[in-house]
Design a protein around this nucleic acid. Structure first.
Length: 223
DNA sequence: AAGTTATGCAACCGCTCGAGA
DNA sequence: GTCTCGAGCGGTTGCATAACT
């Protein structure tokens, strides 16, 4: 509470085209990262988070806009059965789609189709979502040999950004995880929509964690 | 045509995690 | 080992506008 610098006023609300242009130009010139300094250096009166979000969701190249295809929709439904509200992971399977877009699409289009279709998402409870963040999908794994959360694009970006730290490891593990997930998604184990499949983090997490462990041992420690 | 309600989406908020000092 | 800060994530809010009365 001590460091109370007179913060410059931060603009909020919808982004204007000229702000977009400034941000886009800035990021294309200087690259992503250091979002907190972007507003100062670019002259945008926006917070770092806001800049990051705007770039990630709208200005980044290869962003796909417009309605979801049937395949994308199907993928979202299946992935959601598997992962719950792990929007960034789900979005990672949909090239050009962002977590925010997937989340919105789920909440507005798909969620309401479900039998219990409420506006807000909560097939896994909010508390579960918070306490069981899937950072190895997330998780509280020890560093290394984990699958960083985020889209594959982000992963690639991260590997470079962090100095190739464990780029190879991450990518390999990621690939293994992807193929495993493909298997899991396409497997008859996963029933179709509306079946009585209740996603529960725990069993899948346990399975997943051991899979990741197995993979990291399996590659002989060089990954 | 005007007012009201519902819907969709963009953006913000609060939290967690990891890295570095 | 602890603290601080930046980044990222999911949940939620609020605005714009479409649909309805």
């Amino acid at each position: 509470m001590e460091r109370k610098e007179a913060k410059p006023k931060v603009r909020k609300g919808l982004w204007k085209p000229d702000e977009d242009l400034v941000l886009k130009t800035y990021v294309e010139t200087h690259g992503e990262g250091n979002w907190s300094t972007v507003s100062k250096k670019s002259g945008l009166m926006r917070g770092g988070k806001s800049c990051r979000l705007r770039w990630k969701n709208y200005l980044r190249p290869n962003i796909k806009r417009g309605g979801m295809s049937q395949e994308e929709e199907d993928m979202i439904i299946r992935m959601h059965k598997l992962l719950g509200n792990r929007w960034s992971l789900i979005a990672g399977r949909l090239p050009g789609r962002t977590d925010n877009e997937v989340k919105n699409y789920w909440n507005t289009h798909l969620n309401k189709r479900l039998p219990s279709g409420k506006r807000m998402s909560t097939d896994s409870t909010p508390d579960q979502n918070k306490s069981k963040r899937l950072r190895v999908l997330g998780g509280s794994q020890p560093a290394g040999n984990t699958i960083p959360a985020g889209s594959t694009e982000e992963l690639e970006g991260k590997s470079q950004e962090k100095g190739e730290r464990s780029a190879v490891s991450d990518v390999r593990t990621q690939q293994a995880a992807q193929s495993m997930m493909n298997y899991y998604i396409e497997s008859p184990m996963v029933p179709d929509n509306n079946a009585t499949f209740v996603f529960d983090d725990e069993p899948f997490l346990a399975y997943w964690d051991s899979f990741v462990l197995f993979e990291s041992i399996g590659c002989g420690g060089d990954c």
